[in-house]
C-alpha cells in the first residue's frame, strides 16, 4: 500500500507492506534514534509522537499514520538538548539505548503536566523501562531539567 507520512517535517511517500509497523518505517527513513527493546509493546524504547501524542511505534501500524505527522527524537533536537544535558550531568543515560524513547516520553509529559510531583512523574514514565540506572539518576535529571525550565536552575 502507499502511505504519505510526514516524519520530522519531511513528507515520505512510500509503498509499504500493509503490516509494516511505524517503528520499522521510521528506521527505514533513516531515523535511527527509534529502538526496539521488546516484542510485546511494554518497554517504551520505541516511543515517538503521532500528531504530538506519544505512541509505541513497535505496535502502531505505519498505515495508521498515513496523512499524519510523526516526530522522533531527531525532530526535536533543540527541545531535547537541555534534557539530554541534564541526563549527562547525572550519568543517567548509561548505555543510552532507552534514552531516545525516554526523552520523547519526558518531553510529552512536560507538555501535558504542569509541575508534576515525583509520583506523577514515575507514574507517567512507568512504561519506559531501563535496566542500567535503577531510575534514580533519571529522576534527578528530570527534576533538574524542570527547575531549569522554570528559570530556577543553572542552564
Amino acid at each position: 500500500m502507499r502511505v504519505n507520512i510526514t516524519v520530522n517535517g519531511i513528507l515520505y511517500q512510500r509503498e509499504i507492506p500493509c503490516d509494516t509497523m511505524l517503528l520499522d518505517f521510521v528506521r527505514q527513513c533513516g531515523f535511527m534514534s527509534v529502538k526496539r527493546g521488546c516484542d510485546t509493546g511494554n518497554c517504551g524504547l520505541c516511543t515517538v509522537w503521532v500528531e504530538d501524542v506519544p505512541v509505541l511505534s513497535c505496535s502502531y501500524p505505519a498505515a495508521r499514520a498515513d496523512g499524519k505527522r510523526v516526530t522522533t527524537l531527531e525532530g526535536v533536537q533543540e527541545e531535547a538538548e537541555s534534557l539530554g544535558r541534564c541526563m549527562a550531568r547525572q550519568g543517567a543515560e548509561q548505555c543510552g539505548y532507552c534514552s531516545p524513547g525516554f526523552i520523547m516520553a519526558v518531553l510529552a509529559m512536560a507538555r501535558e503536566l504542569d509541575n508534576p510531583t515525583d509520583e506523577e512523574i514515575a507514574h507517567y514514565l512507568e512504561g519506559n523501562l531501563c535496566r542500567c540506572t535503577g531510575y534514580a539518576s533519571q529522576m534527578r535529571a528530570i527534576r533538574a531539567w524542570m527547575k531549569e525550565r522554570r528559570g530556577e536552575g543553572e542552564p
Binding site: 522522533t72 544535558r85 543510552g96
Partner: peptide, 16 residues
C-alpha cells in the same frame, strides 16, 4: 570528579 560520559551527547541525541 562528576564528569559526563564522553558519548553522552551522541546517546542523548539518539544518534545511530
Amino acid at each position: 570528579k562528576a564528569i559526563p560520559k564522553l558519548d553522552s551527547g551522541a546517546l542523548t541525541a539518539g544518534k545511530g
